[in-house]
Design a protein around this nucleic acid. Structure first.
Length: 362
RNA sequence: GUGGCCAUGGUGAAGCGGUUAUCACACGACUCUGUGGCAGUCGUAUCACGGGUUCAAUUCCCGUUGGCCACC
């Protein structure tokens, strides 16, 4: 049974539906990030208006806090966080990269030092599967190593080969249930390593394929080149996920190359820093996306009683909150500022994806 | 009124006869890509005013102005 159906393709773009045990998701889509079980500052009331169909959460962080016992008792992450739509869980592979001072990689797995109390935890592919099964996410990611950039060939070769071996172990360890398991293509910016990784993972017949190890500091052109190498090698009928990307134009470029899924901290983190996306303009032929950046903390907005973006239909812009007010809230660290800005930026990203889908299906 | 102490970015503080005048916070400009509300880069001072000593004064001396303390 196939849980992914492509309804329409157009010059490399594809649009369809991904089905999970908590509902369907229209592709291509963007996942807001809820690392520790919450999209920072957002309430379910906000999601009701944003209409996002999925969120992303994190194995490493949830395992450390609050720990699996309470999540098991709550009968899974969905119930625990009161979210009944799909969840994708990242495996901790990115933490291999981002917490490089606090971990050791071995063939067997990764030893992490907790960022909370320094305690040691050993993550093997098998253990990660067990954790993700306890969390009950709809889409589980295999444990991988997200290699840094720049990365020499020998390291990238060894690292991506190990990621593939870990994927084999993940698949073996996975119980037969409705959770989907995605593999992760690695290989840094090296064409042959990416090809090898893609081919070997494809042979495992996983439920979907992610492209990892990008957006770690390489030039955007390297990212696009890598997509050009990898996407054609991935099975057409399986969803493709570009991890951690990215800026709106990068998302468009990736969708153009056949990617279906995205996640990125930019809209949420930037919102907290008063860096707001406005004036979304997507060309009908999907040739380009334009937008403005509004740095709401700038002094020039101190007396500006206009909404953040008069072309935006998000709850923040539609309900009368002004630039001057939001700037004020941000400058005195009022949590409401974070919420208003996060709603706005997440809406921008979801709107971008809606318009991309609309123009593919048109 | 008399005596003492003090005056350094927006704020609070270092500093020393020769420095690119240091730090924190704030402010302003940037950065942020499978999230630590984080972190970083850069910018912002005619060292209260006037005079003197000195090769050289933010630094030492005198005066002015302002502030704090004590005493009458």
């Amino acid at each position: 049974m196939n849980n992914f159906k492509i309804a329409k393709t157009k010059k490399g773009f594809r649009s369809g539906i991904l089905r999970t045990s908590h509902g369907k998701i229209h592709t291509p889509f963007f996942m807001p990030i809820a690392t520790r079980g919450s999209v920072k500052y957002l309430h379910n009331d906000d999601f009701a208006q944003l209409k996002n169909e999925i969120i992303l959460s994190n194995t490493y962080h949830l395992y450390l806090k609050p720990g699996l016992e309470i999540i098991k008792k709550a009968v899974g992450l969905h119930k625990f966080m009161n979210w009944d739509k799909p969840i994708l869980t990242d495996s901790g592979g990115y933490q291999v990269f981002s917490l490089k001072k606090m971990r050791k990689i071995k063939e067997e797995g990764v030893e992490f030092k907790s960022t909370y109390d320094g305690s040691k935890h050993f993550f093997t592919p098998e253990k990660v599967m067990q954790i993700e099964e306890t969390l009950g996410s709809d889409i589980m990611m295999v444990l991988d190593e997200c290699a840094p950039y720049p990365c020499d060939y020998a390291y990238a070769e060894a690292s991506s080969a190990m990621t593939t071996r870990w994927a084999v172990r993940c698949k073996k360890a996975k119980k037969k249930n409705k959770q989907l398991l995605f593999g992760i293509v690695q290989g840094s910016i090296y064409k042959d390593l990416r090809e090898k990784s893609a081919k070997e993972l494809t042979a495992l017949n996983l439920d979907g394929y992610a492209i990892g190890g990008l957006a770690v500091g390489e030039p955007a052109q390297e990212m696009y080149k890598t997509l050009d190498v990898v996407c054609p090698l991935l099975p057409e009928k399986k969803p493709r996920y570009l991890m951690g990307v990215g800026q709106p134009e990068q998302i468009l470029e990736a969708v153009r190359r056949g990617v279906d899924m995205f996640d990125c901290v930019l809209p949420t983190r930037n919102a907290r820093h008063g860096f707001l996306y406005t004036k979304l303009k997507l060309a009908k032929d999907l040739s380009k996306v334009k937008y403005n950046i509004l740095r709401i903390k700038s002094a020039k907005f101190a007396k500006d009683l206009k909404p953040l973006d008069n072309t935006c239909s998000c709850a923040t812009c539609k309900s009368g909150y002004t630039r001057a007010y939001i700037r004020h809230l941000l400058s005195v660290n009022e949590p409401l500022a974070m919420r208003l800005c996060t709603v706005h930026n997440v809406h921008f990203y979801l709107q971008l994806m809606r318009e991309i889908r609309y123009n593919i299906n048109r």
